[in-house]
Design a protein around this nucleic acid. Structure first.
Length: 453
RNA sequence: GCACAGGUGGGUGAGUGGUUAAAGCCGACAGACUGUAAAUCUGUUCCUCCUAGCGAGGUACGGAGGUUCGAAUCCUCCCCUGUGCA
Protein backbone atom coordinates (compact mmCIF):
# COMPACT_ATOMS: atom_id res chain seq x y z
CA UNK A 1 0.00 0.00 0.00
CA UNK A 2 1.39 3.35 -0.94
CA UNK A 3 2.01 5.72 1.90
CA UNK A 4 -0.30 8.68 1.92
CA UNK A 5 0.78 12.20 2.59
CA UNK A 6 -1.48 14.27 4.78
CA UNK A 7 -1.94 16.91 2.19
CA UNK A 8 -0.56 17.44 -1.25
CA UNK A 9 0.30 20.62 -2.98
CA UNK A 10 -0.55 21.34 -6.58
CA UNK A 11 2.74 20.22 -7.97
CA UNK A 12 2.75 16.85 -6.32
CA UNK A 13 3.75 13.93 -8.47
CA UNK A 14 5.32 10.53 -8.47
CA UNK A 15 9.04 10.29 -9.09
CA UNK A 16 10.28 6.81 -9.90
CA UNK A 17 13.57 5.67 -8.43
CA UNK A 18 15.28 5.96 -11.79
CA UNK A 19 14.35 9.57 -12.16
CA UNK A 20 16.60 12.40 -11.10
CA UNK A 21 16.44 13.77 -7.61
CA UNK A 22 15.33 17.28 -8.17
CA UNK A 23 17.49 19.86 -6.44
CA UNK A 24 15.71 22.55 -4.55
CA UNK A 25 12.40 20.73 -4.60
CA UNK A 26 10.05 20.90 -1.70
CA UNK A 27 9.79 17.47 -0.21
CA UNK A 28 7.24 18.49 2.37
CA UNK A 29 4.78 15.86 1.34
CA UNK A 30 7.14 13.21 0.18
CA UNK A 31 6.17 9.65 0.92
CA UNK A 32 7.60 6.34 -0.03
CA UNK A 33 5.65 4.38 -2.57
CA UNK A 34 6.16 0.74 -1.74
CA UNK A 35 5.14 -2.44 -3.37
CA UNK A 36 3.76 -4.38 -0.46
CA UNK A 37 4.42 -7.83 -1.90
CA UNK A 38 8.07 -7.41 -2.78
CA UNK A 39 8.69 -4.57 -0.36
CA UNK A 40 10.75 -2.96 -3.08
CA UNK A 41 10.71 0.79 -3.22
CA UNK A 42 9.71 2.06 -6.62
CA UNK A 43 10.06 5.73 -6.06
CA UNK A 44 8.71 8.71 -4.21
CA UNK A 45 5.85 11.09 -4.30
CA UNK A 46 7.39 14.47 -4.40
CA UNK A 47 5.97 17.93 -4.27
CA UNK A 48 7.93 20.00 -6.73
CA UNK A 49 7.92 23.55 -5.62
CA UNK A 50 10.24 25.11 -8.13
CA UNK A 51 13.33 26.50 -6.52
CA UNK A 52 11.88 26.57 -3.05
CA UNK A 53 14.40 26.13 -0.31
CA UNK A 54 13.25 23.20 1.79
CA UNK A 55 14.97 24.51 4.88
CA UNK A 56 13.23 27.83 4.74
CA UNK A 57 9.86 26.14 4.61
CA UNK A 58 10.45 23.83 7.48
CA UNK A 59 12.45 25.85 9.93
CA UNK A 60 11.04 26.34 13.36
CA UNK A 61 11.01 28.99 14.70
CA UNK A 62 10.52 30.82 11.40
CA UNK A 63 13.71 31.99 9.75
CA UNK A 64 14.89 35.53 9.94
CA UNK A 65 12.97 37.86 7.68
CA UNK A 66 14.81 38.79 4.49
CA UNK A 67 17.07 41.68 5.07
CA UNK A 68 16.12 44.94 3.46
CA UNK A 69 19.75 45.84 3.13
CA UNK A 70 21.23 45.64 -0.35
CA UNK A 71 23.24 42.65 -1.38
CA UNK A 72 26.77 43.67 -0.74
CA UNK A 73 28.50 41.09 -2.87
CA UNK A 74 27.52 38.64 -5.53
CA UNK A 75 30.52 36.73 -6.64
CA UNK A 76 30.01 33.76 -8.91
CA UNK A 77 32.64 31.15 -8.24
CA UNK A 78 33.67 28.07 -10.07
CA UNK A 79 30.59 26.15 -9.12
CA UNK A 80 29.21 27.36 -5.83
CA UNK A 81 27.41 30.69 -5.93
CA UNK A 82 27.70 32.39 -2.56
CA UNK A 83 25.74 35.55 -1.93
CA UNK A 84 26.46 37.64 1.10
CA UNK A 85 23.33 39.45 2.16
CA UNK A 86 24.44 41.38 5.18
CA UNK A 87 27.60 41.92 7.10
CA UNK A 88 27.82 43.07 10.66
CA UNK A 89 31.44 43.69 11.45
CA UNK A 90 33.23 40.52 10.48
CA UNK A 91 30.03 38.48 10.80
CA UNK A 92 28.10 37.78 7.61
CA UNK A 93 24.72 36.48 6.59
CA UNK A 94 24.85 34.57 3.33
CA UNK A 95 23.32 32.07 1.00
CA UNK A 96 25.17 29.22 -0.55
CA UNK A 97 23.55 27.74 -3.65
CA UNK A 98 24.37 24.06 -3.84
CA UNK A 99 22.99 21.63 -6.40
CA UNK A 100 20.85 20.29 -3.57
CA UNK A 101 19.30 23.46 -2.29
CA UNK A 102 20.38 26.71 -0.78
CA UNK A 103 22.16 26.84 2.51
CA UNK A 104 21.71 29.84 4.74
CA UNK A 105 24.89 30.83 6.50
CA UNK A 106 26.28 30.91 9.13
CA UNK A 107 25.31 27.27 9.24
CA UNK A 108 25.91 24.37 11.55
CA UNK A 109 26.38 21.08 9.75
CA UNK A 110 25.59 17.92 11.70
CA UNK A 111 28.05 15.09 11.21
CA UNK A 112 26.78 11.93 9.57
CA UNK A 113 30.02 10.04 9.20
CA UNK A 114 28.65 6.72 8.04
CA UNK A 115 25.83 8.11 5.92
CA UNK A 116 23.76 8.60 9.05
CA UNK A 117 23.53 11.09 11.84
CA UNK A 118 23.69 8.48 14.56
CA UNK A 119 20.25 7.89 15.99
CA UNK A 120 18.25 10.35 13.91
CA UNK A 121 16.29 9.48 10.75
CA UNK A 122 16.51 11.76 7.77
CA UNK A 123 12.92 13.00 7.95
CA UNK A 124 13.54 14.23 11.48
CA UNK A 125 16.70 16.00 10.32
CA UNK A 126 14.62 17.71 7.66
CA UNK A 127 12.07 18.72 10.25
CA UNK A 128 14.83 20.16 12.43
CA UNK A 129 15.86 22.33 9.51
CA UNK A 130 19.18 20.67 8.75
CA UNK A 131 20.36 22.21 5.49
CA UNK A 132 23.58 20.35 4.95
CA UNK A 133 25.14 17.20 6.35
CA UNK A 134 28.66 15.89 6.59
CA UNK A 135 29.73 12.50 5.35
CA UNK A 136 33.09 10.85 5.67
CA UNK A 137 35.05 9.52 2.74
CA UNK A 138 37.27 7.23 4.78
CA UNK A 139 34.43 5.49 6.58
CA UNK A 140 32.26 5.12 3.48
CA UNK A 141 35.26 3.90 1.52
CA UNK A 142 35.78 1.09 4.02
CA UNK A 143 32.08 0.32 4.34
CA UNK A 144 30.05 -0.09 2.21
CA UNK A 145 32.68 0.97 -0.36
CA UNK A 146 32.74 3.85 -2.83
CA UNK A 147 31.67 1.73 -5.78
CA UNK A 148 28.81 0.30 -3.80
CA UNK A 149 27.53 3.81 -3.00
CA UNK A 150 28.03 4.84 -6.61
CA UNK A 151 26.04 1.87 -7.85
CA UNK A 152 23.29 2.69 -5.40
CA UNK A 153 22.91 6.10 -6.97
CA UNK A 154 25.41 8.17 -5.02
CA UNK A 155 25.42 9.27 -1.44
CA UNK A 156 22.30 11.42 -1.70
CA UNK A 157 20.19 8.66 -3.16
CA UNK A 158 21.78 5.96 -1.01
CA UNK A 159 20.92 7.70 2.25
CA UNK A 160 17.76 9.33 0.93
CA UNK A 161 18.92 12.84 1.62
CA UNK A 162 17.98 15.45 -0.93
CA UNK A 163 19.58 18.42 0.70
CA UNK A 164 23.23 19.34 0.55
CA UNK A 165 26.09 17.09 1.61
CA UNK A 166 29.72 17.87 2.30
CA UNK A 167 32.21 15.04 2.48
CA UNK A 168 35.41 15.21 4.44
CA UNK A 169 38.33 13.83 2.52
CA UNK A 170 39.61 11.39 5.10
CA UNK A 171 42.40 13.78 6.03
CA UNK A 172 41.20 13.93 9.59
CA UNK A 173 41.54 10.17 9.91
CA UNK A 174 45.20 10.62 9.09
CA UNK A 175 45.26 12.52 12.34
CA UNK A 176 42.90 10.51 14.50
CA UNK A 177 44.05 7.05 13.43
CA UNK A 178 47.63 7.91 14.15
CA UNK A 179 48.47 4.42 15.41
CA UNK A 180 47.37 2.86 12.14
CA UNK A 181 48.90 5.13 9.53
CA UNK A 182 52.06 5.96 7.69
CA UNK A 183 52.35 9.31 5.92
CA UNK A 184 54.60 9.78 2.91
CA UNK A 185 54.85 12.47 0.26
CA UNK A 186 52.65 10.43 -1.98
CA UNK A 187 49.85 9.82 0.52
CA UNK A 188 48.90 7.84 3.55
CA UNK A 189 48.92 4.13 4.16
CA UNK A 190 46.14 3.22 6.56
CA UNK A 191 45.32 0.10 8.37
CA UNK A 192 41.58 -0.31 8.52
CA UNK A 193 40.21 0.02 12.02
CA UNK A 194 37.61 -2.56 11.03
CA UNK A 195 39.72 -5.50 9.92
CA UNK A 196 43.33 -4.35 9.91
CA UNK A 197 43.59 -4.49 6.13
CA UNK A 198 45.95 -2.05 4.48
CA UNK A 199 44.76 0.83 2.31
CA UNK A 200 46.33 3.78 0.57
CA UNK A 201 44.85 7.26 0.37
CA UNK A 202 46.32 10.06 -1.68
CA UNK A 203 45.01 13.42 -2.86
CA UNK A 204 44.10 11.71 -6.13
CA UNK A 205 42.31 8.74 -4.57
CA UNK A 206 40.50 11.00 -2.10
CA UNK A 207 39.20 13.05 -5.04
CA UNK A 208 38.12 9.95 -6.91
CA UNK A 209 36.30 8.68 -3.86
CA UNK A 210 34.53 11.97 -3.31
CA UNK A 211 33.59 12.20 -6.96
CA UNK A 212 32.14 8.72 -6.58
CA UNK A 213 30.12 9.72 -3.55
CA UNK A 214 28.81 12.80 -5.33
CA UNK A 215 28.62 15.25 -2.44
CA UNK A 216 27.94 18.90 -3.21
CA UNK A 217 31.02 20.09 -1.42
CA UNK A 218 34.16 18.02 -1.19
CA UNK A 219 37.35 18.65 0.72
CA UNK A 220 40.98 18.63 -0.32
CA UNK A 221 43.08 15.86 1.16
CA UNK A 222 45.06 17.43 3.97
CA UNK A 223 47.12 16.55 6.97
CA UNK A 224 45.66 17.80 10.23
CA UNK A 225 48.70 18.86 12.20
CA UNK A 226 48.78 17.49 15.72
CA UNK A 227 49.08 19.64 18.83
CA UNK A 228 51.51 20.36 20.26
CA UNK A 229 53.98 20.37 17.38
CA UNK A 230 57.26 22.21 17.04
CA UNK A 231 57.80 24.92 14.45
CA UNK A 232 59.59 22.76 11.90
CA UNK A 233 57.01 20.04 12.13
CA UNK A 234 54.17 22.55 11.66
CA UNK A 235 55.84 24.01 8.59
CA UNK A 236 56.64 20.64 7.09
CA UNK A 237 53.02 19.53 7.66
CA UNK A 238 51.63 22.75 6.24
CA UNK A 239 53.80 22.46 3.12
CA UNK A 240 52.63 18.89 2.63
CA UNK A 241 49.01 20.01 2.87
CA UNK A 242 49.69 22.74 0.30
CA UNK A 243 51.23 20.29 -2.14
CA UNK A 244 48.38 17.87 -1.54
CA UNK A 245 45.85 20.68 -2.12
CA UNK A 246 47.39 21.45 -5.50
CA UNK A 247 47.30 17.77 -6.41
CA UNK A 248 43.71 17.53 -5.16
CA UNK A 249 42.65 20.40 -7.37
CA UNK A 250 44.51 19.14 -10.43
CA UNK A 251 43.02 15.68 -10.15
CA UNK A 252 39.58 17.02 -9.39
CA UNK A 253 39.58 19.36 -12.38
CA UNK A 254 40.63 16.51 -14.63
CA UNK A 255 37.93 14.15 -13.39
CA UNK A 256 35.05 16.19 -12.07
CA UNK A 257 32.85 15.36 -15.01
CA UNK A 258 33.02 11.70 -14.14
CA UNK A 259 30.26 12.18 -11.59
CA UNK A 260 27.49 9.98 -13.00
CA UNK A 261 24.56 12.12 -11.80
CA UNK A 262 23.63 15.24 -13.56
CA UNK A 263 22.79 17.23 -10.42
CA UNK A 264 26.39 17.29 -9.33
CA UNK A 265 28.21 16.48 -12.55
CA UNK A 266 30.82 19.16 -12.89
CA UNK A 267 29.24 21.22 -10.15
CA UNK A 268 30.88 19.73 -7.10
CA UNK A 269 32.75 22.39 -5.17
CA UNK A 270 36.22 21.59 -3.91
CA UNK A 271 37.27 23.44 -0.76
CA UNK A 272 40.86 23.96 0.30
CA UNK A 273 42.02 23.58 3.88
CA UNK A 274 44.27 26.00 5.71
CA UNK A 275 46.72 24.53 8.20
CA UNK A 276 49.66 26.13 9.99
CA UNK A 277 49.32 24.95 13.57
CA UNK A 278 49.09 27.61 16.24
CA UNK A 279 51.37 30.09 14.50
CA UNK A 280 49.54 33.14 13.10
CA UNK A 281 52.30 33.79 10.56
CA UNK A 282 52.12 30.25 9.21
CA UNK A 283 48.34 30.43 9.19
CA UNK A 284 48.54 33.54 7.09
CA UNK A 285 51.03 31.96 4.73
CA UNK A 286 48.93 28.83 4.47
CA UNK A 287 45.83 30.90 3.74
CA UNK A 288 47.52 33.03 1.10
CA UNK A 289 49.08 30.08 -0.70
CA UNK A 290 45.89 28.02 -0.56
CA UNK A 291 43.93 30.93 -2.04
CA UNK A 292 46.23 30.90 -5.03
CA UNK A 293 44.44 27.74 -6.10
CA UNK A 294 41.28 29.82 -6.58
CA UNK A 295 38.87 27.37 -5.01
CA UNK A 296 35.19 28.06 -4.35
CA UNK A 297 35.60 27.96 -0.59
CA UNK A 298 38.18 27.59 2.15
CA UNK A 299 38.27 25.74 5.41
CA UNK A 300 40.28 26.28 8.54
CA UNK A 301 41.54 22.92 9.71
CA UNK A 302 43.86 21.76 12.45
CA UNK A 303 41.97 23.36 15.31
CA UNK A 304 40.22 21.75 18.25
CA UNK A 305 42.99 19.22 18.44
CA UNK A 306 43.75 19.65 22.13
CA UNK A 307 44.84 23.27 22.32
CA UNK A 308 43.29 25.67 24.86
CA UNK A 309 40.11 27.36 23.69
CA UNK A 310 41.55 30.85 23.92
CA UNK A 311 44.22 29.78 21.46
CA UNK A 312 41.61 28.32 19.10
CA UNK A 313 39.84 31.64 19.01
CA UNK A 314 43.07 33.53 18.50
CA UNK A 315 44.02 31.36 15.52
CA UNK A 316 40.55 31.55 14.00
CA UNK A 317 40.72 35.31 14.19
CA UNK A 318 44.24 35.36 12.80
CA UNK A 319 43.27 33.09 9.91
CA UNK A 320 39.82 34.24 8.88
CA UNK A 321 41.01 37.74 8.02
CA UNK A 322 43.27 36.32 5.31
CA UNK A 323 40.48 34.41 3.60
CA UNK A 324 38.60 36.06 0.74
CA UNK A 325 35.49 37.81 1.99
CA UNK A 326 33.41 36.76 -0.98
CA UNK A 327 33.84 33.03 -0.50
CA UNK A 328 32.47 30.74 2.15
CA UNK A 329 34.68 30.07 5.14
CA UNK A 330 34.38 26.78 6.89
CA UNK A 331 35.81 26.18 10.35
CA UNK A 332 36.25 22.45 10.73
CA UNK A 333 35.36 20.52 13.84
CA UNK A 334 33.93 23.09 16.23
CA UNK A 335 32.48 23.58 18.76
CA UNK A 336 30.35 24.11 21.85
CA UNK A 337 27.24 26.28 21.50
CA UNK A 338 29.10 29.29 22.90
CA UNK A 339 31.95 28.70 20.52
CA UNK A 340 29.87 28.44 17.36
CA UNK A 341 28.20 31.75 18.21
CA UNK A 342 31.57 33.33 18.74
CA UNK A 343 33.09 31.94 15.56
CA UNK A 344 30.11 33.14 13.54
CA UNK A 345 30.70 36.58 14.98
CA UNK A 346 34.27 36.36 13.69
CA UNK A 347 33.10 35.74 10.13
CA UNK A 348 32.91 31.96 9.92
CA UNK A 349 30.13 30.75 7.61
CA UNK A 350 30.14 27.01 8.11
CA UNK A 351 30.90 24.76 11.07
CA UNK A 352 30.55 21.12 11.88
CA UNK A 353 31.11 19.16 15.03
CA UNK A 354 30.41 15.74 16.47
CA UNK A 355 29.94 17.26 19.90
CA UNK A 356 26.15 17.70 19.90
CA UNK A 357 25.56 14.17 18.61
CA UNK A 358 28.24 12.37 20.58
CA UNK A 359 27.61 14.25 23.82
CA UNK A 360 23.91 13.51 23.46
CA UNK A 361 24.58 9.79 23.28
CA UNK A 362 26.66 10.17 26.41
CA UNK A 363 23.96 12.02 28.31
CA UNK A 364 25.31 15.56 28.00
CA UNK A 365 22.69 18.00 26.79
CA UNK A 366 23.09 21.61 25.79
CA UNK A 367 20.39 24.04 26.85
CA UNK A 368 19.78 27.77 26.94
CA UNK A 369 20.59 27.53 30.65
CA UNK A 370 23.84 25.65 30.22
CA UNK A 371 24.89 22.03 30.17
CA UNK A 372 22.67 19.35 31.63
CA UNK A 373 24.13 15.96 32.45
CA UNK A 374 20.86 14.10 32.27
CA UNK A 375 22.32 10.99 33.90
CA UNK A 376 22.62 12.74 37.25
CA UNK A 377 20.46 11.53 40.11
CA UNK A 378 19.25 15.08 40.74
CA UNK A 379 16.96 14.79 37.71
CA UNK A 380 15.36 11.53 38.82
CA UNK A 381 12.17 13.26 39.97
CA UNK A 382 12.43 16.42 37.90
CA UNK A 383 9.17 16.85 36.03
CA UNK A 384 10.30 19.98 34.24
CA UNK A 385 11.20 20.25 30.58
CA UNK A 386 14.81 19.69 29.66
CA UNK A 387 15.05 23.27 28.44
CA UNK A 388 11.97 25.41 29.11
CA UNK A 389 13.06 27.83 26.37
CA UNK A 390 13.50 25.18 23.73
CA UNK A 391 10.58 24.46 21.38
CA UNK A 392 11.90 21.12 20.16
CA UNK A 393 9.76 18.00 20.18
CA UNK A 394 11.76 16.55 23.04
CA UNK A 395 11.53 19.56 25.34
CA UNK A 396 7.90 20.12 24.57
CA UNK A 397 6.91 16.56 25.36
CA UNK A 398 9.16 14.77 27.84
CA UNK A 399 10.31 15.49 31.37
CA UNK A 400 13.87 15.48 32.63
CA UNK A 401 12.88 12.57 34.87
CA UNK A 402 11.80 10.54 31.86
CA UNK A 403 14.92 11.38 29.87
CA UNK A 404 17.06 10.38 32.83
CA UNK A 405 15.16 7.13 33.18
CA UNK A 406 15.69 6.32 29.50
CA UNK A 407 19.37 7.03 29.83
CA UNK A 408 19.76 5.04 33.03
CA UNK A 409 17.89 2.14 31.46
CA UNK A 410 20.22 2.21 28.48
CA UNK A 411 17.28 2.54 26.12
CA UNK A 412 18.04 3.49 22.51
CA UNK A 413 15.32 6.11 22.71
CA UNK A 414 17.54 8.03 25.12
CA UNK A 415 20.13 8.44 22.39
CA UNK A 416 17.53 9.35 19.81
CA UNK A 417 15.78 11.98 21.90
CA UNK A 418 18.99 13.41 23.33
CA UNK A 419 20.48 13.75 19.87
CA UNK A 420 17.36 15.37 18.50
CA UNK A 421 17.41 17.92 21.27
CA UNK A 422 21.08 18.76 20.97
CA UNK A 423 20.85 19.16 17.21
CA UNK A 424 17.72 21.22 17.58
CA UNK A 425 19.51 23.43 20.06
CA UNK A 426 22.51 23.91 17.77
CA UNK A 427 20.32 24.62 14.74
CA UNK A 428 18.13 27.04 16.67
CA UNK A 429 21.19 28.76 17.96
CA UNK A 430 22.49 29.29 14.45
CA UNK A 431 19.07 30.44 13.28
CA UNK A 432 19.12 33.04 16.01
CA UNK A 433 22.64 34.04 15.06
CA UNK A 434 21.48 34.59 11.47
CA UNK A 435 18.49 36.49 12.77
CA UNK A 436 20.65 38.76 14.88
CA UNK A 437 23.03 39.48 12.01
CA UNK A 438 20.01 40.22 9.81
CA UNK A 439 18.82 42.68 12.40
CA UNK A 440 22.18 44.35 12.36
CA UNK A 441 22.86 43.22 15.88
CA UNK A 442 25.76 40.88 15.97
CA UNK A 443 25.43 38.55 18.92
CA UNK A 444 28.68 37.56 20.54
CA UNK A 445 27.53 35.11 23.18
CA UNK A 446 25.09 32.29 23.52
CA UNK A 447 23.04 34.02 26.20
CA UNK A 448 22.82 37.12 24.04
CA UNK A 449 21.57 35.00 21.16
CA UNK A 450 18.96 33.21 23.22
CA UNK A 451 17.65 36.41 24.75
CA UNK A 452 16.80 37.85 21.32
CA UNK A 453 13.10 38.46 20.78
C1' G B 1 16.14 -39.00 57.29
C1' C B 2 20.53 -40.23 54.10
C1' A B 3 24.12 -38.65 50.18
C1' C B 4 26.40 -35.01 47.49
C1' A B 5 27.13 -29.65 46.31
C1' G B 6 27.23 -24.93 48.33
C1' G B 7 26.75 -20.27 51.69
C1' U B 8 32.25 -14.22 49.92
C1' G B 9 31.16 -6.80 49.86
C1' G B 10 24.39 -3.56 46.63
C1' G B 11 24.20 -8.06 42.79
C1' U B 12 27.06 -11.87 40.35
C1' G B 13 31.47 -14.34 41.00
C1' A B 14 37.15 -15.27 41.68
C1' G B 15 40.13 -16.46 45.60
C1' U B 16 41.41 -22.61 49.14
C1' G B 17 47.03 -20.57 55.16
C1' G B 18 50.69 -14.66 54.54
C1' U B 19 51.18 -7.14 50.21
C1' U B 20 43.37 -9.94 50.50
C1' A B 21 39.53 -4.35 52.54
C1' A B 22 39.25 -9.14 49.24
C1' A B 23 40.17 -9.91 41.26
C1' G B 24 36.74 -9.44 37.16
C1' C B 25 31.90 -8.25 35.59
C1' C B 26 27.18 -5.74 36.71
C1' G B 27 24.85 -1.93 39.45
C1' A B 28 25.34 2.98 41.81
C1' C B 29 27.70 7.88 41.82
C1' A B 30 30.78 11.49 39.44
C1' G B 31 33.82 13.30 35.25
C1' A B 32 35.51 13.61 30.09
C1' C B 33 33.91 14.09 25.06
C1' U B 34 34.94 19.63 19.57
C1' G B 35 36.55 17.83 10.40
C1' U B 36 33.01 10.31 15.01
C1' A B 37 37.85 3.45 15.55
C1' A B 38 33.03 6.60 20.62
C1' A B 39 25.40 3.36 22.90
C1' U B 40 32.73 5.20 24.31
C1' C B 41 36.44 6.30 27.92
C1' U B 42 38.19 7.66 33.07
C1' G B 43 37.60 7.84 38.33
C1' U B 44 35.05 6.59 42.98
C1' U B 45 32.08 2.85 45.31
C1' C B 46 32.67 -0.92 54.12
C1' C B 47 33.09 2.79 58.48
C1' U B 48 35.87 6.59 61.32
C1' C B 49 39.99 10.02 61.83
C1' C B 50 43.85 13.16 60.08
C1' U B 51 49.37 16.19 58.36
C1' A B 52 44.72 13.40 52.83
C1' G B 53 49.03 9.29 52.13
C1' C B 54 49.90 3.22 47.58
C1' G B 55 48.32 7.34 55.95
C1' A B 56 46.23 5.47 60.90
C1' G B 57 42.56 2.72 63.31
C1' G B 58 38.01 -0.29 63.20
C1' U B 59 34.70 -3.86 61.21
C1' A B 60 34.09 -7.84 57.29
C1' C B 61 33.86 -13.70 53.60
C1' G B 62 26.40 -17.93 57.18
C1' G B 63 26.99 -18.53 63.12
C1' A B 64 29.91 -20.19 67.38
C1' G B 65 34.31 -22.27 68.92
C1' G B 66 39.29 -24.18 67.73
C1' U B 67 44.43 -24.98 65.21
C1' U B 68 48.33 -21.37 63.81
C1' C B 69 53.12 -16.20 64.52
C1' G B 70 49.08 -15.47 60.84
C1' A B 71 42.45 -18.01 58.66
C1' A B 72 37.64 -16.10 53.63
C1' U B 73 41.03 -20.26 53.12
C1' C B 74 42.45 -25.96 57.87
C1' C B 75 39.37 -28.62 62.04
C1' U B 76 34.64 -29.29 65.16
C1' C B 77 29.61 -28.30 66.04
C1' C B 78 25.30 -25.54 64.61
C1' C B 79 22.11 -22.82 61.02
C1' C B 80 20.56 -22.19 56.03
C1' U B 81 20.15 -23.25 50.47
C1' G B 82 20.13 -26.50 46.10
C1' U B 83 20.11 -31.38 43.83
C1' G B 84 19.50 -36.68 44.16
C1' C B 85 17.74 -41.04 46.90
C1' A B 86 14.23 -42.95 50.35
Amino acid sequence: MAGQAGRRCSRYRFLPNKGPIRPGACYENRTNHENSSSNQRLGYFVCLHGGANPASQRGRPPPAPPSSQPVSATIPTVSLPFRIQTTEGPARLGRLATPHGEVETPVFMPVGTQATVKGVPQDVLEELGVQILLGNTYHLYLRPGINQVRQLGGLHRFMSWDRAILTDSGGFQVFSLNELRKVTEDGVTFRSHLDGSSHFFSPESAMEAQIGLGADIIMAFDECTEYPADASRVRQSMELTLRWAARSKRHFEDHKHEVPWKETKGTQALFGIVQGGMDPALRRESAERTIELDLPGYAIGGLSVGEPRSLTREIVEATVQHLPAEKPRYLMGVGTPDEIVEYASLGIDMMDCVLPTRAARHGLLFTSEGKVSIKQVRYAADQGALDPNCPCRVCSRYSRAYLRHLYASNEVLAQVLNTIHNLSFYLDTMRKVRHSIGLGRKARSLSEVWSLP
